[in-house]
Amino acid sequence: MRKRAKDRLPGFLLVLPSIILIAIFVYWLIYRNVATSLDQTVTRATKRVLNPGGLANYSKLLGDGEYQHALFNLLVLTVVFVAGTMFFGLLWAVLLEKGVKGEGFFRSVYLLPMAISFIAAGVVWRWLLSPGVGEQAVGLNQLLAMMGLERFQNGWWQSPTQFSMAAMAIPAIWQLSGYVMALFLAGFRGISEDQREAARIDGASEWQLYRHVLFPQLSPIALSALIIIGHMSMKMFDLIYAIAGQNSYKASVPATLMWTQLFAQNNPTAAAVNATILLVLVAIVVVPYLIYTSKSEKGTH
């Protein structure tokens, strides 16, 4: 149906305050940050060149070994974090999805960690992920020993392997699997009972039912969960800050490195470069998704 301009204007006016706020607080500030990242800076008293200015600021950071290490850590963290939350989220949703006594209780408990801030959870996870093994074992390593599983003891995120950052995903998975579960549960509820019925009647096993009937219908939810968890991982700061402190080489990611650049090295320009690259990385993932969803919606409207 065609609407007249008279009808459309009020809609625009109602959204206008939000448009202005988002324009200033998101887009104007992003512009300011990018502008800062291109600055040439020289220390005031000794005239030492901190940042050469322009795109050279970017090549300087990208060429820095420490930054590359942080980027690699971020990749490891993101892959494990996303895979872990998707796995547990889906598994829990399947377990609780149908006919379990006390379902509401279990759901609430699984969701509970999400209520706790990263900074609070980090306090206890710092203990649990202590790297000591054998006689020095505390936290999870001690628990493993108590269960007779000493051979699985390890240094967690401080293990001497390249992929140690994977362990930092454990607390993150603990916190957000419940949320992914809730998303999937909502998805399951959206599938009508008739479809399951029809599949069962057609002789499908439970596995076939999930594999061919239910899971395909959850793929839009899986995609949004993927995007949500993925972008959370990229900007994760609190948890690492709380668990590893601010100057840990093993646990450094761009977001924590930015903290060091900004404050320990007193170099806001380099921090702005780092933040801009982070934004671009997130945009590479998110923008196609947003365009895809907005297109597919136009199709359905």
Binding site: I22, V26, I227, M258, A271, A275, V282, A283
Partner: peptide, 12 residues
């Protein structure tokens, strides 16, 4: 898009 930006990118 404003929902997904890393807040580090606007913090300074």
């Amino acid at each position: 898009f404003g929902m997904f930006i890393p807040y580090q990118a606007i913090m300074i």
